[in-house]
């Protein structure tokens, strides 16, 4: 697997760190898979961070939320691909998973709102008002609490690829 390349002009090259692929049927067969995968991958990629233990804890915390989002997909077939790559202080998660067309539209709208100026306010309103967090709020929280940037990338077929950049080195002491 070579370096991750993107079409966006001027974007730095992210070097691949680790990738895990699973049948979506297998993945959604047990909720604990979110915890297993996020914990395992966090430990693997944090070894050479300046504070491996804290980085692993933060990364697992953020990544688990993304996996829980993927877990709730309404599409029953296909593959889940979790890829982590790195550029300097930023770790990039690319989560590719099957979804139905309505879900795809939902994610595109949700991600576009994450970048809005009222993201923090909407997040606080949700915490104080909603019984449970929606998938949109989960994505919003990544931006609010982890300074994550998110985007949806083009992918073939009934799949969606969420690309999340996490500058966790900068969040640490």
């Amino acid at each position: 697997m070579g370096p991750v390349q993107h079409d966006l002009a001027g974007e730095p090259t992210f070097e691949p760190m680790i990738q895990i692929d699973m049948e979506i049927k297998g993945f959604v067969s047990a909720w604990r898979h979110c915890d297993y995968v996020s914990t395992y991958m966090a430990r693997m990629i944090s070894q050479n961070r300046s504070d491996s233990v804290r980085h692993s804890n933060l990364f697992s915390s953020a990544f688990n939320e993304l996996l829980e989002v993927a877990f709730r997909t309404r599409h029953a077939d296909g593959e889940l691909a979790c890829r982590v790559s790195r550029h300097g202080a930023t770790d990039r998660i690319e989560l590719t998973f099957p979804c139905v067309p309505e879900e795809r539209q939902f994610y595109e709208e949700a991600v576009s709102q994450v970048a809005g100026t009222e993201a923090r306010e909407r997040y606080l309103n949700s915490v104080s008002g909603d019984l449970a967090p929606s998938r949109e709020i989960v994505l919003l929280e990544l931006a609010v609490d982890y300074n994550a940037t998110l985007r949806v990338e083009e992918a073939d077929g009934d799949v969606i690829r969420l690309v999340v950049d996490l500058p966790l080195e900068g969040l640490q002491h």
Binding site: D35, N57, S60, S61, N64, E65, E68, S126, V127, S128, D130, L131, A132, P133, I137, V138, E141
Partner: peptide, 17 residues
């Protein structure tokens, strides 16, 4: 508390709020 997902955080937060 090593880890807490958003579902649990919302649940406990709502009770406190």
């Amino acid at each position: 508390l090593t880890q807490m997902n958003n579902a649990a955080f919302h649940a406990f937060s709502r009770i406190i709020i």
